[in-house]
Design a protein around this nucleic acid. Sequence first.
DNA 1: TCTTAACCGAGACGGTACGTCCGGTCTTTTT
DNA 2: AAAAAGACCGGACGTACCGTCTCGGTTAAGA
Lengths: 182, 182, 182, 182
Amino acid sequence: MARHSTRTKVHDAVLSLAREGAIGSITMEGVAGRAGISKQTLYNSWSSTGEIIFDALLARSTDESGAVVIPDANDLGADLHDLATATIDELTSPDLEPLLRAVTAEIQHDAELARQYREQLLAPQLAAIADRFRRAGADDPDGLAELFAGPILHRWLLRTHTFDAEWVSAHVDRVIRATSHT
Amino acid sequence: MARHSTRTKVHDAVLSLAREGAIGSITMEGVAGRAGISKQTLYNSWSSTGEIIFDALLARSTDESGAVVIPDANDLGADLHDLATATIDELTSPDLEPLLRAVTAEIQHDAELARQYREQLLAPQLAAIADRFRRAGADDPDGLAELFAGPILHRWLLRTHTFDAEWVSAHVDRVIRATSHT
Amino acid sequence: MARHSTRTKVHDAVLSLAREGAIGSITMEGVAGRAGISKQTLYNSWSSTGEIIFDALLARSTDESGAVVIPDANDLGADLHDLATATIDELTSPDLEPLLRAVTAEIQHDAELARQYREQLLAPQLAAIADRFRRAGADDPDGLAELFAGPILHRWLLRTHTFDAEWVSAHVDRVIRATSHT
Amino acid sequence: MARHSTRTKVHDAVLSLAREGAIGSITMEGVAGRAGISKQTLYNSWSSTGEIIFDALLARSTDESGAVVIPDANDLGADLHDLATATIDELTSPDLEPLLRAVTAEIQHDAELARQYREQLLAPQLAAIADRFRRAGADDPDGLAELFAGPILHRWLLRTHTFDAEWVSAHVDRVIRATSHT
DNA sequence: TCTTAACCGAGACGGTACGTCCGGTCTTTTT
DNA sequence: AAAAAGACCGGACGTACCGTCTCGGTTAAGA
């Protein structure tokens, strides 16, 4: 419905607002103002800031590749280490972190947004990780993908500790130990 | 600063509002109205709804026990299973889930609240879980506690799947496999 | 400029909207929607709802007669009584009253519309009334026409009282008493 | 409910906006901005611009006198002439005219406002005029008050002609001719 | 008959104002 | 002295219309 130029303006606006830090300042009115569009035009296509941020994240992820790329160097440990590092880099990138935290907050209240987030962003990534385990001959690739991703989310979300290299290695070791084969 | 009766009224108000579903309807104004106190009195003791909810959760957890109890039946697998089940019951309790989700959402924006949550609610629980691993002679009890808790949070927060008994057993098995001894 | 069918559709739309009561709901957008035409087409021919309503009233008055007919039964009192009754019937007709009130309201702000209303609707009627006084040999027919019409407008506009038959007779009597001859 | 200082600020704001001409610029938002108060405070006490304008007019009329003063020099013609002149001066005063026209427009749509206007502003004035006729021994003072006021309203509202001294004299003469005594 | 220009529907768009809700602060009144 | 009551400023909410502006499709001429 919305013109392509409108979408672009909105994405740029939300990214620039997020970069300026004040996540709380991402309001419908603020985004409209920054994007130079009217509130009504904004509401025509998005019904909450959560949707806008999600849309911006989605556009960002599909623009660049279109598919999730998982390293496969025939060494499960090295691949998981690379994967963890890449994930952590995204989660802690100054540009992305505020947006990811904002979406995470909103999906606690908004079931529909949660569904979209799960299906369009999360599921492909988890499926790709599970695939890596499957290729390694693991028994329960989906469970292992969760075992791999869960603690990273835990640390990021609850800010219990920073992500140092040592922890990443130890985490990968633990997950590999948990891997069983028939 | 606030009288004890005020604290009680506020806790009751926030719990009753949460029980009515609309988590988003927990506002300073709404809580004051429901508790039958003035807004100013509310602001005297709490500066955001996040603080109020956290305070209510804290009161609830200290009222009942005062300390975190971890099962210890000399069978690590059985104990972890009990622990996971108890945790999941809390996370999905109709009364608590809305409050926990609301706090989780707010700590994404509020660093001070995040610190309090981490130190006063989360750390004791993680320490208790790590203790159970330590008693079982594990190498890195803290890492294992995180490995145990992370996927549960992942599933709850992102609502990827429900928590069925089968998954709990498989998860415990994976964590036990990851446990190494010197 | 507009096609005849467009004019008709617009007139029908504004009449039907007025009949539904909510005079305030007569908006450019609403008329366009009800008439099944685009907003641009509407703006091509009319620049405000006032103009549309005035145009509809004008079309109505020229459709039906083309000229103002004043009764002339050789009895000034009876003729004035008929005239007053006819005028009051128009002013209080369920179909017309909302439109007349809306135009009356708009000409308070819109000088150009006021001019059109005066010249195209009001002046002919006042001239016809003055003519009746002139035929009766009155000194100042225009002043008497105003004396006759003024109180009717006063009562209608300010809703001071309803128009009962008794009042009409008394009013006509007063106006006749005010009539002087050279 | 509203503080006295708030009322004063609002009245000043609406008068200053009206003096600047753009009657259409009298909006709730505009008045709040000019008065330096919040929109909510405005809505707490007035629910439309019509109410605000009416309140400002009412404050103005009650501040100065508290009662309607009608000239009584024992010469009905002279008194009516004075009265007409005073009324016309009010109706055409640069400060008041825009406000009076705005209220007149709004009471066409707002029955409740119309009632207040009638009872609190109009009725006392008409009663005072009727009293003057009664003192002169007229048969139907109320009808004559209407006969006197109606044409003035007619001329002002429909802007048919300006109010020159000659017309005022002729109008007073006509009304006096219409006066009958038992 | 064919074209060509005006008219038209549809609706996105930047704006302004609407009326409401809530966040915080402050003052007044009650207890 | 503390608290209820609530007025107040500010800012964002989501909606309704305003008037402008394309964009294709249709209609009614003139060539």
